[in-house]
Design a binder for these strands. Sequence first.
DNA 1: ATTTTCCTTGAAAACGTTGTCAGCTTTTTA
DNA 2: TAAAAAGCTGACAACGTTTTCAAGGAAAAT
Lengths: 348, 348
Amino acid sequence: MAANSKFPSQLVFPSGDKPIVTATDVAREAGVSISTVSRIVNGTARVAKDKRLAVEAAIARMDYRPNLQARSLKLGTSMIIGMLTQDIESPFLARVIRGFEEALVGTGYAPIIVSGHWNQKEEIERVGLLMDRRIDGLVVLYGDLSDSQLLEISRRQPVVATGRRLEGEHIRTLQLDHEQGGYIAASHLLGLGHRRIAHISGPPLHTDATERYAGFVRAHREYGVEVDRDIVFQGDFLEHGGVLAMNRLLDCGKNFTAVFASNDQSAMGAHLVMYRRGIRVPDDVSLMGFDDIPAAAYLTPPLTTVRQPFFEIGLYLAQSLLAMLGHDLGELTVPSMELVIRESVKRC
Amino acid sequence: MAANSKFPSQLVFPSGDKPIVTATDVAREAGVSISTVSRIVNGTARVAKDKRLAVEAAIARMDYRPNLQARSLKLGTSMIIGMLTQDIESPFLARVIRGFEEALVGTGYAPIIVSGHWNQKEEIERVGLLMDRRIDGLVVLYGDLSDSQLLEISRRQPVVATGRRLEGEHIRTLQLDHEQGGYIAASHLLGLGHRRIAHISGPPLHTDATERYAGFVRAHREYGVEVDRDIVFQGDFLEHGGVLAMNRLLDCGKNFTAVFASNDQSAMGAHLVMYRRGIRVPDDVSLMGFDDIPAAAYLTPPLTTVRQPFFEIGLYLAQSLLAMLGHDLGELTVPSMELVIRESVKRC
DNA sequence: ATTTTCCTTGAAAACGTTGTCAGCTTTTTA
DNA sequence: TAAAAAGCTGACAACGTTTTCAAGGAAAAT
C-alpha cells in the first residue's frame, strides 16, 4: 500500500502557463451546452450548422483537445495497446516494434511499450502497470511469463503472444516455424557440399533455439550425414556467447568446414574470433547466421542467414489484436522465413 | 472531427471474463466506505486497525487495482512521461531509451514512447497524441521540431530536449559537445601521423554532424595541417550513405591514409566498400567512427570510435525531467564523450 | 459528571467526458 | 389547420477516483 509514499511530500507540478481548456470552456465560448460540443467533436449526432460553425471556431481559437483520460473513464476503453518487449536494444525486437507501430497508425490506438528484460518478476510488474492503465489489449513479445500467467492476464483483455503456442478465448499466439528455419539453413550448407558443420546453439530453454537445432538435425538426416555433437557448442544468443563458443570450438581440435550460428548476434561473435585467429570467412570456414538483423548485411563479408520477417511479425501481431478488438481486417497471412544468400558461405 | 469514424460502427470489446473490481466493490466487501478504501490504498490518513485489515484482505482476495485513469482525472497528473524518439530501430536511440527507462524505475512514472521518424508532421501529430493523454512531462530525442514549436509545447508541461540549446521556463536541453567529439577523433588520427584524412559527413542540416566536422577542422588547424575539402563526402548517418560516400571517395583519385566517418553506421558502410575493393583496414587505410554503437565492437577489425554515453544521456534526461517535476535528485553531471581505441586505426 | 479535544469515519462534490432522456422547435402529413 | 413526426438541444447522471467537511464516538481534561 502507500503507493505514493515514494514521492516527496509536497510535490510541485509546474503545469505550464497555458491554461487547459475543457469542453465546458468551449461550450461557454460558443454559447452552447457541453453536450453539443461533445456531439460535434465526435460526430455522434446532427447539430445545426450555425452552432457547429461556432463550436468549431471556438475549438480552433482556444486550441481545445479532449482529455483522453476522461473519455477513457467514461467509455471504458483507453485506446491504448500495451506491448511487453524484452529489450528495446535488441535489433530484432526493435524491428518487430516498428512493424507493430506501423500497423497501428491511423487506427486511433496508441502503443505503450514496456520492457521485461527476460526477467519474469519484472515482466509481471510491468504488465501490472499496463493493466492499471486499462489497456485495451496486450502484445507479449517472447519472455518468461508462464502459459498460465498469460492465460490469467488474458481474462482482463485480449492478448497476443509470440514464441509459444496457446489456446484461449481471448488469446492468440504466433509461433514461426523455427524447425523449418533451422532446416533451411542446414540444407543450404549441406547442399553446397559441407559435411562437417559446427553449430553454436542458443539458450537451451529457449524453444526457438532448440527448434532451430531440431531442423538442423532433420536436414542432416535427410542428407544421410551424421551430426557430430562434439562440434555443437552452446551460446546465449548474444555476441559474447558467440565469442566463447567459437573459441571452444576452435580449441577442441575437431575439424569442420562451416558454422551455423543459431542467430546473427552469435554469428558476429564467432566472426570476430575467426578474424582474430586469421581464419578467413568464407575461404577457410563458411559462416551462417539466423535472423537477418540490420548489421548482418554490413559484416565483412556480408552474412548469409535465414531471414525472420520481423517487421511483418509486428504487423501481424497488431492486426490479430485489432481483430480481437472487433476490427475486421480480412485474412491474415502468417509470415514465413526465407534464406538470404550473401557472401559468408561458399561451396565446400 | 469525427475522430471515431474510422472504427466499425458496432464495436465489440471482448473485455474478458474477469470482472473489473473497483474501490466500491472493495468497500462493500469490507463493510466500509470507499473513502476508507482510498485512504488505505494511498496511506493518506489513519484508519482503525480492524478496518485496515479487512480492507487489505478484501483487496488481496478480489485482486483490486486502482484505475489509474480515474486517479489521473481527479489528480490532474497522469504519472506518464512521454518520449518522442525518431526511430525505435536506431541502435543509439534505443540505448538512450534504455537509460531513460532505467531511471524511471521505482519513481511511479511510466514512459510512453512514440516515434517521429525524422518527419516534422509526424512528430507534431505524435506529440499531440501524447499531450491528449495529459502526460506530465515530455522528452524529445532529436528530431525536426522547431525551437518555437518546442517552446509552445513546453507551455503545457515540462520538456527536456536533446540536440539543441534552448532557454525557457519549463524547458531544459542537453547538448553534448560534438565539436569536441570531432576534435577528439581527428586529434587521435593526426596524433598517429595521419595527414591526409578523408571525412564522411552527416546530413548538412544536422547540427551534431556539422559540429563534429567543425571539431575535425579545429584539430587540423592545431596540427597545422590543411583540410582537403576534396576528400570530404556527404553521407546520411546511415550505412548506405557510407557506402555511397566511400565509393565516391575511392573513385575521386585523391590519396588518403585514414577516413573519419561522422557516425558508426556510415563507417560500417565505408568498411564494407573497402572490403569489397580489397582495401585492408587498418593496414591500407585507417577507419574511425563516431557513437560506439553495439555492433562497432564486433566489426572486423573492431572499430575505433568516439563513444557517446547514450545510456547516461537517457539517465540524465529522465533525471532532469524529474527535477522539473519537483523531485529533488541532487546535482546532475552531464555526460561527456570519450575516445574508444580498438583496432581499425594504426600509426601512419 | 461535564466539557473539551482528538480520532475515525462516511456523504458528497469534483475531475472532463459521453449518452440518455425529455422538451422544445420545426417540418411533414392528414 | 391540427396532429404527428422529425430534428435539435440542454440537464443530468454516470465512469472510478480523491478530498473536504461535518458528524459521531472515545479519550482526555476540567
